[in-house]
Design a protein around this nucleic acid. Structure first.
Length: 221
DNA sequence: CTCCGGATCCTCT
DNA sequence: GAGGATCCGGAGG
């Protein structure tokens, strides 16, 4: 495994993140996100991501994105500067975290879907007591957010400065697979949006699962 | 191994 | 009021 390292200039890293999320997403594979809290430090090497675009991108409208219908209080960070976090709460109990991409004003982000815990194994295990193996600690978007203790309180915060740190790999991953995004219902989850990227063969990559099709709505009379 | 339902509450319509 | 960028445990093959 190549040892990740940040560019000498942190502004350069932010500049790199200010582009198209679909282009940046595969380049984030192999990078390491760390979070330093009073409990200790946990760092995760990213092995699976998904790109989400914003509205106003007439070339690539993204019906699977939280921003598809425009800005709201929740998705505001996606319209903000690159390198910040967008964390949302879902299913009444889970958090999922994104790295915001694109220039400020243009919404796009990369969902962190899975990773390998490379620092703070014990603490990650305490935060994720239901894990059955080390590979399970962050093998899913909500698992990863839990291992790193990310919540909506962190949404909008800068991932490139304390208490966070993001380091890109020295060289981009050579072997990257792509496919439809997980759990996205409707057109956004189709083969037309192969914006999920992962490191093939990595044991921490989550298993693919198509969106659960909703049962046909029963119209009462 | 796969499939399925329940948990649980914020967000936007 | 409906549905969700999910996870987990239990049932069945």
């Amino acid at each position: 495994m190549t040892v990740p390292s940040s560019p000498a200039d942190p502004d350069l890293l932010r500049e790199l993140l200010s582009g198209d999320a679909r282009r940046i997403a595969p380049k984030l594979l192999g990078s390491v996100l760390s979070h330093n809290s009073h409990e200790g430090t946990v760092a995760v090497r990213i092995t699976e991501v998904e790109a989400y675009m914003g509205p106003g991108d007439s070339l690539h409208p993204d019906p699977g994105s939280h921003t598809f219908r425009g800005p709201t209080a929740r998705n505001a960070p996606m319209f903000g500067p690159a390198g910040h976090l967008y964390v949302y709460f879902t299913y009444g109990m889970h958090y999922c975290a994104n790295i915001v991409c694109g220039p400020a004003g243009i919404a796009s982000a990369v969902l962190l879907r899975a990773g390998q815990v490379v620092e703070g194994l014990h603490l990650a295990g305490v935060r994720r007591p239901t894990s059955k193996s080390v590979a399970d600690l962050a093998s899913g978007p909500a698992r990863l957010a839990t291992a790193l203790a990310l919540t909506t309180a962190d949404s909008g915060r800068d991932a490139l400065s304390e208490p966070f740190d993001l380091r890109l790999p020295e060289t981009p991953a050579l072997d990257v697979s792509s496919g439809p995004r997980v759990g996205v219902s409707g057109a956004g989850g189709s083969e037309d949006y192969p914006w999920r990227f992962w490191l093939p063969g990595d044991p921490t990559v989550s298993r693919y699962k198509a969106a659960k099709p909703r049962p046909a709505k029963f119209q009462s009379r």
